[in-house]
Each structure stands twice: as structure tokens, then as C-alpha cells.
Write a protein that binds this DNA or RNA. Structure first.
Lengths: 129, 129
DNA sequence: ATGCTACTACGAAAGTTTTCGTAGTGTCAA
DNA sequence: TTGACACTACGAAAACTTTCGTAGTAGCAT
């Protein structure tokens, strides 16, 4: 029954680093976060300890500097967050949501073509069933 | 200078109702929120007052029961939130984000086909330039 | 051994968001 | 005109999140 623990904003920043690196010590995470927004080492440490308690991350304590890994999956978290945005902002419509992504200037033509291929693939699979 | 004020979670729930209804009194918003998660009338009222101060909503005070409207745009808010999810969860990749949406069981075949059409359209437009 | 450095643990303040009670007031029916 | 009711305003507590200082300790160079 342990429902998925939703990460806070700061926790998400940390998870983001862990997803990217696979695993990292507090120091390594701190370097990234600090360069992004400036914070103190113990703040990051404390957050990671809290996340450990909550089960968002796991850690290996063999070495003096513990090595952390995300315990929650990137796509699970993403799915949840997207569902929330879809519900609250786009009235439950995946279409509207994707539309908004595509209207974003940051989405390149190349990416769009990749996305189209993916959709065609998905449609073929759906038909196959 | 006044950058877009980011709504909190509760504020977003209220905006969601306002976007859907176009305009509504506190009572009307309360009915929706209360049925979704149970809360007291004055909590919703207070939140809407705060949102008014922040400029997230506007209101018409002619009638005794003020009539509220969202002042922030649905798609502006959505864009911001999606950018955040894209950065923090999908490493900045629109492709991965859309992929996740499509893998969601709640996305129907019909919606997918709509999405594909939209992408083709977008690609044609991009080529035209 | 001594001191220096990098680390964990943790308490508690500060900051933010949410909740709700109480007070005051206009409207309307009896 | 009185009382019941629906509404706004607002203060302040409660809950949650973020920040950081201080204390303690292991490892290592001198």
C-alpha cells in the first residue's frame, strides 16, 4: 500500500542529477546543484538524507562518502507529473498537451520528425492487436 | 518586471476550475474542489483572495458574491510546467516527454491519430519557411 | 600523536503554503 | 425589525519545505 511518494521541488532537482549520473555522492550532487543555483553542502546533504528516509533514494554506505541512487523511476515520476499537468491544465487531453509541447520553440524539426515516427509506430502496434 | 507568478498546487486546482468554467463564484469553485478532496469554504475563499492579490485571477465585485476569472492563460501556465517537467525529468528532451505521454494507457488511438496529423502539419509549416 | 580535511547526523530557524475559525455585513423573508 | 443566511475579510495556527549551523568522527599527512 505504500503509495508513491511525490518528490518536492528540491528533491526533484536532486533526482534529476541522480537519474543523469546513475549514482553519485552528496558532493557530486552538490557540485551540480550549487552551480545551478547556489546552495550549501549541508542543505543538499540534509535533503538527500530525508529522501533516503522517504525511500526516494537508496544508498551504499560502505565507503565513507555514501553513494546514492534514485529508487524511484524516472518514467514513473514523469508519468505521474504529466498526468497531473494533463488533468489540471489541459483538462485531461493528451492531444492538447502534446500540441503545447510542439508549439514550444525549443522543439526542433528533427525532434518532431522523431516524434512522428514514434507515433506511427505506436499506431501500427495498436492496430496489430 | 513582474514575471509570471507560479501558482502553487492548490492555486492550480482553483485555476483549473476557472479555466473550465470561464468564470465562477467562490461557492461554485468550492463545490468542485470540495467534491474532489474535501475542504472548507473559507479555505477556498482565502486562496482565491490570495490569488487575487497575486494577480493570478481577476474579479468582478459588483454582486455580493464576487465573480472570478483566471487572469493567467492556460497555455502559458501549461508551457511553463511542461518545460519544467521536460528539464527536470526528461533531461530536456521533448521526444522523451511525448513518448511517455503516448505510453500512457489513457491516450486513445483516436487521440494518437490526431496527434500525428498535428505533427505532420507542424512539419509542413516548418519546411515552408 | 596532532592537526587538517571531508564526511555524516541532526536540530532548529526561516520560509512557504494551507487550513480554518471568528468577526462583520448586506439581503431577504416572516 | 428581527433573525437566519450567505457572503467577504483577515489573523493566526498548522503543516510542509528548505536552509544552515554545530557537533562528532574517520582518514591521512606530517
Amino acid at each position: 500500500m505504500k503509495s508513491t511518494n511525490k518528490p518536492t521541488k528540491s528533491e526533484l532537482e536532486i533526482l534529476s542529477v541522480l537519474w543523469e549520473k546513475g549514482e553519485a555522492t552528496v558532493r557530486e550532487v552538490f557540485e551540480v546543484i550549487n552551480s545551478q543555483k547556489g546552495t550549501s553542502y549541508t542543505t543538499v546533504l540534509k535533503l538527500m538524507q530525508i529522501m533516503h528516509e522517504k525511500g526516494l533514494v537508496e544508498r551504499n554506505e560502505d565507503a565513507r562518502a555514501h553513494v546514492y541512487r534514485a529508487k524511484v523511476k524516472q518514467n514513473e515520476t514523469g508519468k505521474q507529473m504529466l498526468n497531473e499537468v494533463m488533468d489540471k491544465v489541459f483538462g485531461g487531453s493528451a492531444l492538447k498537451l502534446v500540441q503545447q509541447v510542439l508549439e514550444n520553440e525549443t522543439t526542433s524539426a528533427e525532434e518532431m520528425s522523431e516524434i512522428r515516427k514514434m507515433i506511427e509506430q505506436a499506431e501500427r502496434e495498436a492496430k496489430g492487436k
